[in-house]
């Protein structure tokens, strides 16, 4: 069985690398965790159905990430999207909830707290943000806030 694909879109290369290395280490060979070079590259991979989970950080400094999420949710709704962001604001949370992403996590989160969210998204759990009140946010201290 081919390994499942996790793509990361993050404009901060060090943060992206840590996410990639951490998840790869914790998830093992059954998964391939890679960093997309750009939102466009990630979209091409999603369009080819080569992605099982998309992890994005919609930085306000880099355009295209929100468009990517919108495109994936519209044309490839089966691909779960996990928002892992350093730019957590109520406005961003609301926007992601509207787009129906699977999970929303605020940095700086510990990798061991991030892992269950990733595996949950991969397991095809129903989108936790789609219905609004079920939004789950992991704060810096790792506490899960049910919204």
């Amino acid at each position: 069985m081919p390994p499942r694909q996790i793509h990361i879109v993050d404009n901060d290369p060090v943060a992206a690398m840590i996410t990639q290395r951490g998840l790869q280490t914790m998830l093992g060979d059954r998964f391939t965790v890679s960093v997309a070079s750009s939102p466009n590259a990630a979209w091409l991979a999603c369009a080819d159905d080569r992605v099982d989970l998309l992890i994005v950080d919609p930085s306000p400094h880099v355009g295209g990430v929100i468009s990517l999420v919108r495109a994936v949710r519209t044309f490839r709704p089966s691909i779960p999207v996990l928002v892992l962001t350093a730019y957590d604001t109520p406005g961003l949370r609301a926007k992601m909830r509207e787009l129906g992403v699977s999970a929303y996590v605020a940095k700086p989160v510990d990798l061991h707290d991030l892992l269950p969210v990733v595996t949950g998204a991969l397991a095809g759990m129903p989108p936790r943000l789609a219905s609004g009140p079920s939004l789950a946010t992991i704060s810096a201290s790792g506490i899960v806030h049910g919204k």
Binding site: D12, A15, G22, T25, Y87, D88, K107, P108, L111
Partner: peptide, 21 residues
Amino acid sequence: SASVAHEINNPLYAARNSLYL
């Protein structure tokens, strides 16, 4: 502070999890 917090989150995330790894 919100602006500073956002800019610090990525390096903080990387540093904490580097130590974890």
